[in-house]
Design a binder for these strands. Structure first.
Lengths: 126, 126
DNA sequence: CCAACTGTACATAATGTATATACTCACCGC
DNA sequence: GCGGTGAGTATATACATTATGTACAGTTGG
């Protein structure tokens, strides 16, 4: 599995794992029913501890994205494309909402924020 | 000082302090040159430990928003309104950028993200 | 049945957060 | 000038979170 973990990131290893596997699932790169690497396999491959992967997989399970089968491993659950889109949007908005509140509290207007977001989005193709 | 700290927030007490005092400064509610409450004073008022306030004030000092004077206390530095706006925008964009990257990695398009942001911004007056 | 692989559980160490307290510096009144 | 008071700064400790390493229990295939 192609993952890009950094020991220098502000994000915990666990969080990096969750985010990157989540992206593979919600984008459809990891298909429903697909088998995830075993906890030990991924820990060895990514040179992290077993518990780090375990905790990441548990978080993804709580998010409803994967399911554990003891003795078999974890696999991707079946989600409609619309449901995947809904989950992605929900996460984005949940993260964005407090940032907007803080920016407003700091004196920025909706117009300024919208212009800022547009600039960030224009930086890369849709 | 009117602050709203919650023991039940996902954010650390320290972070809550930083964000709320930062908002008071950048919005202009706390004027340049204004004296901040002493570390002990604010700790007593907000019923938190002295070190919690100390760490928050240190962070705000690193952000360039306040300055310590031993024996005198901390005070708000002089910032042009345009500089305050620039700082507020920089924070917002720094927080938003990784969220946009993650949302894209999860399969969302720029149009979807822009629509989402607009919805969130339309929820409250500019 | 047994070996190998799987997830799950547990003990330990390091780091971050928060509390309480002590030390040092600055200011002000006598 | 000196002492008291209040300021920031530093230190020890406890707790929560993160990560490592290892052992236990379940599953599968030969």
């Amino acid at each position: 599995m192609i993952l890009n973990l950094s020991d220098y990131s502000n994000e915990t290893l666990q969080h990096q794992l969750v985010q990157q596997i989540r992206a593979l699932i919600l984008s459809g790169d990891l298909e429903e029913g697909a088998q995830l690497p075993s906890i030990r396999g991924l820990a060895t491959e990514q040179k992290v501890s077993v518990i780090t992967v375990q905790r990441a997989y548990e978080a993804l399970e709580r998010h409803g994205l994967i399911q554990a089968r003891r003795g078999k491993g974890f696999m991707v659950v079946a989600l409609e494309p619309e449901e995947r889109r809904r989950l992605a949007l929900a996460r984005f908005e949940a993260e964005l909402h407090p940032q907007i509140e803080q920016a407003r509290a700091e004196g920025l207007s909706s117009l300024e924020l919208l212009a800022s977001v547009s600039r960030l989005l224009d930086g890369t193709p849709a």
